[in-house]
Amino acid sequence: MKKKQWRGWGPAEPAEQHYLVQPRTLAGSGDVRHVSAFLRASGWREHTREGGPLIVESPDRTVRIAYDPYSLPGGWTIEGAADNLNGIWSAHLGRDVPVEIVAGLTDSLTLPRSAHAPNVWEPLEEQRWHTRAEGEHYTATSPDGTAWMQYRQSPDGSARWWSGAMDSRGTAWTAIFTPTTPMHLVQAFSTALANPDPVMRPRGRVPLSTQVRTWSVSVTPSQLNAWQQARITAARAATWARNSAQSTRPRTRARPSSPVGAARTRR
């Protein structure tokens, strides 16, 4: 019997060239599935029509997210129903907001609200963003000056949160939040906005900007798929854990009350 030389598990998988991009605020929009796949894995329902914008809705139907790349100005629209703490709210994020920053907000919609009081400025100050007051406005600017987060108050008393990024060619994108937007969601956005880690983009999808720094990396399709699947698996596991906790929670039934002094009869 002749011995055969082992040639591995199969043909070598060709690597593809990608780039790590920094700052992430100028990395371009990225793959929308980074947001939508996580939401679907978290139990959100998709109502997208063929050829139309992406539309997903929370399990309790209180939040609706749409992404429209076709119309102007397009981009992300996130709308929430009123609750005991906030009125109807909405957030509008431009089409070129990096999906990693969008996900900072949308991922937090799938999580229980923290008991700690939210602080929008804290994650920005931790990353040494420069903060300043300008009349009725309060602004935080990234160390390289390319991104900002601002609380704007108009003379008529109306207010809003406003964020964006710009390079040498002008404004790359903006994001606007109504004053009724829950503060923990605005903080989730500012946390992702201030994250100094680079993000990955495939070759040909890196914006042409002198203010962007890039590092070439080689990755295989299976590696990319594994990273994406890990994020989806984490969403499914968290959703399963929440649903299990709710289903095993003991339920108490209120005992019907009787008028004081009422006679009780035996059956």
Rank of each mutant, 00 (worst) to 15 (best):
107 D>E: 13
107 D>P: 01
108 S>W: 00
109 L>S: 08
109 L>M: 14
109 L>W: 09
111 L>I: 02
112 P>Y: 07
114 S>N: 11
115 A>L: 09
115 A>C: 03
120 V>H: 00
121 W>V: 09
122 E>T: 09
124 L>F: 07
127 Q>P: 01
128 R>H: 13
129 W>S: 01
129 W>K: 04
130 H>Q: 11
130 H>Y: 06
132 R>C: 02
132 R>P: 00
132 R>Q: 11
135 G>I: 10
135 G>Q: 10
140 A>Q: 08
141 T>D: 06
142 S>R: 02
143 P>I: 07
143 P>H: 08
145 G>F: 02
146 T>Q: 06
148 W>T: 06
149 M>H: 10
151 Y>K: 10
156 D>K: 10
157 G>Q: 14
160 R>P: 07
163 S>I: 00
164 G>P: 00
165 A>W: 01
166 M>D: 09
167 D>E: 03
167 D>V: 01
167 D>S: 01
168 S>D: 11
170 G>L: 04
170 G>K: 05
170 G>M: 05
171 T>I: 10
171 T>W: 02
173 W>C: 09
174 T>F: 02
175 A>W: 02
181 T>Y: 00
183 M>S: 11
185 L>Y: 06
185 L>V: 07
186 V>C: 07
187 Q>K: 02
189 F>D: 05
189 F>C: 04
190 S>M: 03
190 S>K: 00
191 T>G: 05
192 A>M: 04
196 P>R: 05
199 V>A: 07
200 M>Q: 14
201 R>S: 10
202 P>L: 12
202 P>M: 11
203 R>Q: 15
204 G>P: 13
205 R>K: 15
206 V>T: 14
207 P>L: 14
210 T>K: 12
212 V>W: 01
214 T>G: 12
215 W>C: 13
219 V>H: 07
